[in-house]
């Protein structure tokens, strides 16, 4: 039963970006590609040959593999309701965050490996934004461990459902912050525009300009997996107290669907921020997570 969250996340990952793209095409009145189109693109990438720059070294070839491995590793920690993930121990959220950071480290040095000025620019932004977004995640997880007294994902999530409406409120707030973290980590609107055509304004897209074939396929699938992973984290805030599977699984897919549609809607109706406004935007979520911390202090009666 420990594999259930892994399986569900893998299933979701096949559809996630498809749903985003479908939402966008419906909202803009286009016919648009089918839901499976992103997956088909990825499979095609995995099958064709590759082109490498002569500037690059083995780092460039190793990085996409490390990236996908770290995401898979991080997914192993995600619980499903009161079902533990494949791996679970006290403080596993720290391992979760640092594993993802390892993948990011490799992606950044891989883009510096090409010696391209644009890719260095993207790498610099990616490093800065992931640095700024890190505290929000840790403050939220810290607050919930303060609230529940536990320190692993599954214990925190299962202890949160003791029925009080306030915890659901806090959960909703945290879900909002997690959703934004997912957008920033995956370099989507409003921080980065995956569809832009100007390299100077890209973040993630410009980092992988030189990747092709199998490696590009891995990176693209990595984005899908990351979205599904954060969606699964968010879904954990909304389970029913009894964890009946006939509620939990529809809730899981419902949350993932709502998340994907929201991303599509945000991308349809908003423009990318100016680069120098991004840090302020990201730090705002650190302050929202501080709000959650204050809420938790109130709930546990430590303030007053």
């Amino acid at each position: 039963m420990r594999m259930i969250s892994l399986l569900l996340i893998l299933i979701t990952s096949f559809f996630f970006t498809g749903i985003i793209i479908r939402t966008k095409s419906i909202l803009s009145g286009r016919k648009g590609p089918g839901i499976m189109q992103p997956m088909k693109d990825i499979i095609r990438s995995l099958r064709i040959g590759s082109v490498y720059s002569k500037t690059t070294s083995f780092i460039f070839q190793l990085a996409p593999t490390v990236y996908i491995a770290t995401i898979l590793m991080a997914i192993l920690f995600i619980p499903f309701g009161n079902q533990r993930g494949v791996l679970s121990f006290n403080g596993d959220f720290v391992f979760f965050a640092y594993t993802l950071a390892l993948g990011k480290f490799f992606m950044i040095i891989a883009s510096l490996d090409t010696g391209s000025s644009f890719e260095g620019m993207g790498a610099s932004r990616e490093a800065l934004y992931s640095m700024l977004v890190e505290p929000a995640f840790f403050i939220i997880m810290g607050s919930f461990s303060l609230l529940t007294g536990f320190t692993s994902f599954v214990d925190i999530f299962s202890a949160m459902h003791f029925g009080s409406y306030v915890t659901y409120g806090l959960g909703a707030l945290a879900a909002f912050v997690f959703a934004i973290i997912a957008l920033i980590e995956n370099s989507r609107m409003p921080v980065d525009d995956p569809k832009t055509h100007l390299e100077l304004t890209m973040i993630h897209e410009v980092m992988i300009l030189d990747n092709s074939g199998y490696d590009l396929g891995l990176i693209l699938y990595g984005t899908n997996l990351k979205f599904a992973m954060y969606g699964a984290l968010i879904a954990n805030f909304f389970h029913t107290p009894g964890y009946e599977w006939y509620y939990s699984i529809p809730i899981f897919f419902g949350v993932q669907l709502a998340f994907a549609v929201t991303v599509g809607v945000v991308e349809s109706f908003s423009a990318r921020f100016r680069m120098n406004h991004n840090p302020q935007f990201i730090l705002m979520f650190t302050s929202i997570s501080l709000l959650i911390f204050l809420g938790v202090l109130l709930l546990t009666g430590k303030i007053i």
């Binding site: 040959g49 082109v51 720059s53 002569k54 391209s116 644009f118 390299e199 030189d210 074939g213 199998y214």
Partner: peptide, 15 residues
Amino acid sequence: AFRRKPVEITSTWGC
């Protein structure tokens, strides 16, 4: 997976 795939070496994409 790379055994049977063509690999080409060129210069970095200069946009």
